[in-house]
């Protein structure tokens, strides 16, 4: 109570000073006073109350009507006071949510983490960066019992928390598939059924799945409506699109995913990405797919991991360090 009293004295002096001098300085002090009051959770009607009390002390002869009008004003300020209290409560709530979200984001990182395997004869690079806190992109490496390497790269439509939760579901369904042989077309067909059954109608997932067999150096792949990857032919020094027809996951129950294959020669490279890479924008301009390949070419001499990191840095800079969409790039290169 003593501080409030002090404030009352203070307010009264300030008011007196201002009425006497009409000086800007006193107005400035009034501003400081209100800031200070806000810090101490003093409501608007309390300020009016202080004003009324000060007036009464400065002008003991104040007409009764004016005094009554002051009570009227006081009453009208009460709703503002309540709104202000609510605002404070929301601010606290917002801070709470923010910290919960960062806990969730960390948990997602742990749940969805995948280890980039050391694979004899293949140099692997992978990077995945979310645009916001939660990542709606996903990539996954797995080795089956026959020694082949499976790589899945996926993008869930929509961003943020729902997208992230959806990805966790995909990851756990993939983990529950038998590890005997992971044919891309079979994997996508099974996942499609999982997504179709379990996910809201406006949500869907695109996915590219590849399987590399180190015995015969063949790469098998299928796509569920995913952004096509690229294949680099080392000998010709040329890129070609790696496209396979297939509908996005979760639209119809009985979608089929034809499987294609490629013989991977020494030095050849397989590039898998999400639309966060190809839909980059520089200001209002969209970048063309050729530009992505040019940048990849520029850093191709580096080891695969360094290469994907440099390519990411390039596009991050191009977009003023503000990603519009989650960015994922995975590269496999057969050793020469």
């Amino acid at each position: 109570m003593s501080t409030l009293k002090l404030d009352l004295e203070n307010y009264k002096e300030l008011l007196k000073e201002y009425i006497r001098t009409k000086d800007e300085q006193a107005l400035y002090q009034a501003e400081q006073f209100s800031k200070h009051s806000m810090q101490h959770n003093i409501s608007p009607e309390e300020i009016i109350n202080i004003h009324v009390q000060s007036l009464q002390e400065i002008y003991p002869e104040m007409p009764a009507d004016i005094q009554a009008s002051m009570n009227f004003l006081l009453e009208t300020m009460i709703s503002y006071g309540l709104a202000y209290q609510e605002h404070q409560a929301l601010r606290e709530k917002q801070l709470e949510l923010k910290s919960e979200l960062s806990v969730a984001a960390n948990m997602q990182k742990t749940l969805l983490s995948t280890n980039k395997p050391d694979f004899n004869g293949i140099d692997i690079g992978a990077i995945s960066v979310p645009a916001k806190q939660m990542n709606g992109d996903y990539h996954h490496f797995v080795q089956d019992q026959e020694g082949s390497l499976g790589i899945g790269i996926a993008d869930v439509i929509g961003k943020g928390v729902p997208a992230a939760l959806c990805m966790s579901m995909i990851k756990y369904s993939m983990d529950s598939f038998p590890h005997k042989r992971m044919d891309p077309s079979v994997i996508l067909e099974s996942l499609n059924r999982v997504v179709e059954r379990n996910v809201d109608s406006s949500m869907f997932i695109t996915m590219f799945y590849g399987l590399y067999n180190p015995q015969d150096h063949k790469f098998y792949y299928s796509s569920a409506g995913h952004e096509p990857g690229y294949y680099y032919h080392h000998e010709q020094g040329e890129f070609s699109e790696m496209d396979a027809p297939g509908l996005v996951l979760g639209v119809t129950k009985d979608a089929e995913y034809p499987q294609k294959e490629k013989l991977v020669e020494p030095g050849d490279m397989i590039i898998m990405l999400t639309d966060g890479v190809t839909e980059c924008r520089q200001g209002d301009r969209f970048i063309e797919p050729e530009e992505v390949l040019e940048i990849i070419k520029e850093y191709m001499h580096l080891p695969a991991q360094e290469m994907v990191e440099q390519v990411y840095k390039h596009f991050e800079k191009l977009q003023d360090f503000q990603l519009r969409d989650d960015f994922t790039l995975v590269v496999l290169r057969r050793d020469v």
């Binding site: 961003k159 406006s202 695109t206 996005v248 969409d325």
Partner: peptide
Amino acid sequence: NYMDSTGLGVFISALKS
């Protein structure tokens, strides 16, 4: 002139409907 995957989601919902 521009649509992203969120837009596709709307048309997929509409198709299902």
